[in-house]
Write a protein that binds this DNA or RNA. Structure first.
Lengths: 148, 148
DNA sequence: TTAATTCACTTGCAAAACGCAAGTGAATTT
DNA sequence: AAATTCACTTGCGTTTTGCAAGTGAATTAA
């Protein structure tokens, strides 16, 4: 099935967009309940293994995780790296395109903080930092993520 | 069924969240391929009828639209108004909570503009304005949406 | 050196969500 | 009075999700 499924990607590359609206196009790629959580994990941890994602609080199921990782990789939002000291482990990290989703995640975080209760202390602390100087927070975080 | 379905909202209010992460909670509410397009339409048009949403380029199907409008209303992101000169029409508009999604939509728009081609001229013009002064754009747009 | 464990996935299957087309009843227009 | 518009609802086939169990390669433990 390897070859067949790769052909599928090349020739049937998920037909036409609904529209050229950048919001609509973006949602077609990562507009679901899981993709941005994967991105979030990578923003916080810089690099994650498959198992790391599974350990996250929201308990994504393994088949969904595999599917999301595949399409995010196909669309170059994330990339795979080989683990420095293990052939059986795989490292995932954000590409530049993925890192640039940070401002979106920041705004979602701020909105969510305003309308949901019992925000974890760790998140609160982070958002306090964000609110002190949003631009600087984003610049600093991107810098951290950018270095290999 | 009116009363029964309202009881359902009160007593069976869609059990537990996956986590208290504000991103995760936000995605549970509007993390799908359609909700933010409804919000987008309301940001641009200020008020929409049911039919207006159906006319949007992305062609949401009517049952999905009805479902999304219901949950967005239940969570007080949008509200219904009676149409000034027709009993058969319904007007939808954003609440304060909904209006405050604007920064998220702006960032999605900017990201999407960067990574997708053939962005409509109207959107390009809007984003040019955004990039000139993001804060001012958001302030002005919120002001416009706020006035009844 | 072999057996157990870990790792990144895949597979099967039931349940839920989606997408399309057609239908409904009240309000409005012709 | 009849036709049309309006905001939905309903039915139904297809797709996606979520859960549990399985797979094979790599690593660790015995």
């Amino acid at each position: 099935m390897r070859f067949a499924s790769e052909l599928k990607i090349i020739f049937m590359s998920k037909d036409k967009n609904r529209s050229n609206c950048p919001i609509s196009c973006s949602l077609e790629l990562w507009g679901d309940k899981w993709s941005l959580l994967i991105i979030r994990d990578l923003m916080l941890a810089k690099q994650c293994t498959y198992g790391d994602f599974l350990k996250s609080e929201e308990k994504i199921s393994t088949n969904i995780l595999a599917a999301r990782l595949k399409t995010l990789e196909q669309h170059m939002v994330i990339e795979k790296l080989e683990h420095p000291n293990s052939k059986s482990k795989v490292l995932y990290k954000l590409t530049k395109k993925g890192i640039e989703l940070l401002p979106i995640l920041v705004e979602i975080n701020l909105w969510g903080e305003k309308y949901y209760a019992d925000i974890p202390d760790k998140t609160k602390a982070l958002l306090k930092d964000v609110k002190k100087d949003k631009k600087s927070f984003i610049r600093r975080t991107i810098k951290k993520l950018d270095i290999d």
